[in-house]
Design a protein around this nucleic acid. Structure first.
Lengths: 344, 344
DNA sequence: GACCGGAGTGGAACCGGTACCACTTTTGTA
DNA sequence: TACAAAAGTGGTACCGGTTCCACTCCGGTC
C-alpha cells in the first residue's frame, strides 16, 4: 500500500530536473542529452514509475480517451461493435469509456455529461434520436462526435458511419419480391431513428420498382427494447390477409421475432419466408438457417474510430463526413418461392 | 469552442470563495449557509458549470472509477456481464473503463498498467490466469480487485464471484448419467483456468458417485478463443467408441460446437444428447431447443460490483471473500434416454 | 576574437479541483 | 450576561504532470 513514485521522485533519483524527465516522457517536447535520457529511463524502470493520467489530463486540458455511448451491450450487435472499437482504440493508445443508454434519452444525456467531465476528446455513439441540443453543445465544446449505425438528421456537422440502410432493405425486399411474394411484412426500428426510416424507404423503393403496392398494415416499427418484435410477428400473422414473407429489419428484435415464430409453430420457409438483419453466428444454427443481411460490424468500428481519432488529431479536413459501408445479403434457407407453396 | 467555466469562475460570479463552492459540491465536507448554497447552485446552473474529473482525481488521489477487464466483449457472456456492471455502476455514480484482453496475458498486463495510470479504485476482471505478480502488485498499490467467473488460486486475498462450477458440472453430468449415458464427452475450458478445472472436477464427481469410470479421452479442454469447440466435437465423434452425450462446459465454445454438430448432420438428441453451459436466448431457437446450465449473469455482475464498491468505500471487513451463485439447470429437448435410442 | 544559433537544462507558473486551517459570526446553555 | 461550542467563511498549499522562459554552454562563421 505504498504510494506510487512521482515525476519529482524520478527527477531527484536521476539527478536531473523534472523538466528533463518530462522531456524524456514526451520526446517531441524538447531535446535531452542521450546520457541523461538513458539515466532517466533506467530510474523510471527501477522505480516502476508510471505517469498519472489525471495529472496529465489536467495539465493538457483533455484526455486521450474516447467515449463510447451504445444503447445496450447485451445486444450482440453493440457488443461486437464495442469489442472492435475498444480493441482498435488500444492499438492507438486510446482508452475507451463505455456507457450504455438502454435507449433512454435521459440516460443518454447523463452519459454525455459524464463524458464531458472526463474531458474526452471524442465520442462515438449510437444516438437515441433525442438530446439534439445536448449533442450540439458537446460539439461546440470541442468534442468530436461520430455517430455510428444511426444518425440524427438535424445535426449537421456530425460525422456518420452506417451501413447502406436504404439499399440493404431494398435488396432484401427485392429478393422476396423476386420469389413471388407480394405481401411482405416489415418489422423495423422506430421511425424516430434514421435506420427505421431508411429501411422503410428501401422497402418502399423495391415495391415501387416492381409496381407492387405497399400495404401500410404490413409495416411495423417497434422499439429496440422490449418484446416488440415478437408482438409484431404475432399481429402480422393474425392479419386476415397475412404476409407470406417477413423481413425483420430491427436487429435488436430479431431474437424476439424468431422466438415467436418458433413458439407458434410457424414452418420456415413453408409457411413464411424470413430474412433478418443480423450477423450473429446463431442465425445459421436454427433450422433452417436464416437468410440474413450481414452488418459489417468490423467496418463500422474501424471507420468510426478512425474518424474520431482523425478529428482529435486534427488530421481531417473540415466538413461533415458520411461513410456508408455496404451490407452483404447472405441467402440461406429461410425463403422459398411463393408459387411452390401457395398460402393456405 | 469556448472554454468551460471553472470553480473559480463560479465563485466570483456568486460572490463567494472557491471553498464555499467546493463545499456546495461536496456537502459532507462542511457547512454552507442555505442562502449562499442556493446562490451558488443558481450560478452553477446558469454557467453550465461541471467539475472536471481530472482535477478532482488529481487532488483526491484516486478516481471514482472501476476498471472492467474482460476477455472478449464479442462473447455474449462477457457482453452481458459488462452491460450489467456498467449499468449498475452508473447508479452508484461510478464510471467503468472497459478493457478487453482477448485472453492474451500481454494485453492483460497492458490493461492493468493503463488502469493503474487512471488511478482506478477497483478492478473487476475475468483473469487469463497469468500475470500473478502483476495482480499482486495492483493489490499492494491499494487497488481493490475482484475476480468474476474465474479465479487464480495463487492469489489469496482477492475476492471472487463465480458460479458453483463443480456443482453445475456435476448436476449436468448426473442428469446424463441418469438417462443411462455412460460415455459422456466433456468440452471445457483450459485447465489453466479455475473454471476449466472445477468443471472437470464436477464431471468426475458425478461419475464417481455412480461408480462409472471416466475415460480421459472424453475430456477435452480447449482454449476460449478460436474454433476449439468445433474441433473437439469432431474428434469426439470420430472416436471408435464415440460418446452418446456431450456436455459443452466452455461457454465461449458453445456456438462453435453446435455449429459443428449442425454441419455434420448429427441429430440431437437421437444421435447425441447435448447440454451446454450458456444463457444466450438463441439456445431455445435451435431445434431442438438446447438443455442448458444457465449462468446467472445478473447475479455475477451485481455481486462483483458490490464487492468492489464495498471495498473501495472501506465498508467491508478485511479478509478474502468468495461468493458462489448457483446456476440453474434448464432441461429442454436436447437429451434423451440412452435405452430408447441405442448408439448405432 | 566577437558574435550567433542551437542544444541542453532547470525554475516556476500553471491546470482545476480539495482540504486544512485560521478566523468571524451565530447559537445555545448555564 | 457570559462564554463555549458550532456554523459559516476565505486563504492557500497541495495533487503531479506540462510548458514556457531564461540561462548556460558549445561549435561554427565572418
Amino acid at each position: 500500500m505504498k504510494k506510487a513514485p512521482t515525476i519529482r521522485d524520478v527527477a531527484s533519483a536521476a539527478g536531473v530536473s523534472v523538466s528533463v524527465v518530462s522531456r524524456v516522457l514526451n520526446p517531441e517536447s524538447g531535446p535531452v542529452a542521450p546520457a541523461k535520457r538513458d539515466m532517466v529511463l533506467r530510474v523510471i524502470e527501477d522505480l516502476g514509475y508510471r505517469p498519472r493520467a489525471a495529472a496529465r489530463e489536467l495539465s493538457v486540458g483533455h484526455a486521450p480517451t474516447v467515449g463510447l455511448v451504445v444503447a445496450d451491450l447485451a445486444n450482440p450487435f453493440f457488443a461486437q461493435l464495442a469489442d472492435r472499437i475498444v480493441w482498435e482504440a488500444r492499438s492507438h493508445g486510446v482508452q475507451v469509456v463505455v456507457m450504455t443508454t438502454q435507449e433512454d434519452p435521459h440516460l443518454e444525456a447523463d452519459s454525455l455529461d459524464t463524458l464531458l467531465d472526463r474531458s474526452v476528446g471524442g465520442v462515438i455513439a449510437t444516438p437515441t434520436g433525442a438530446n439534439v441540443e445536448k449533442w450540439a453543445r458537446l460539439q461546440s465544446l470541442g468534442v468530436n462526435v461520430v455517430f455510428v449505425d444511426r444518425t440524427i438528421p438535424e445535426l449537421a456537422d456530425v460525422d456518420v458511419v452506417s451501413i447502406e440502410n436504404v439499399d440493404s432493405a431494398r435488396r432484401a425486399t427485392e429478393y422476396m419480391l423476386g420469389l413471388g411474394h407480394t405481401r411482405i411484412g416489415l418489422i423495423t426500428g422506430p421511425i424516430s431513428t434514421s435506420t427505421g426510416r431508411s429501411r422503410i424507404q428501401g422497402y418502399q423503393a423495391a415495391h415501387d420498382s416492381r409496381s407492387v403496392p405497399v400495404d401500410p398494415q404490413l409495416i411495423r416499427d417497434v422499439p429496440f427494447r422490449g418484446d416488440g418484435g415478437g408482438d409484431a410477428v404475432g399481429s402480422l400473422l393474425a392479419l386476415p390477409d397475412r404476409p407470406t414473407g417477413i423481413i425483420v429489419a430491427n436487429t435488436a428484435q430479431v431474437q424476439s421475432a424468431v422466438r415467436r415464430l418458433v413458439q407458434t409453430g410457424t414452418r420456415i420457409p413453408n409457411d413464411l419466408s424470413v430474412i433478418v438483419f443480423d450477423d450473429s453466428p446463431w442465425t445459421e444454427l436454427t433450422s433452417p438457417p436464416l437468410s440474413i443481411i450481414r452488418q459489417p460490424i468490423g467496418m463500422l468500428a474501424l471507420h468510426s474510430l478512425e474518424l474520431v481519432l482523425g478529428r482529435m488529431q486534427g488530421k481531417l479536413p473540415d466538413g461533415q463526413r458520411t461513410i456508408e459501408v455496404n451490407a452483404d445479403f447472405v441467402p440461406r434457407n429461410s425463403c422459398s418461392p411463393l408459387v411452390l407453396t401457395p398460402t393456405r
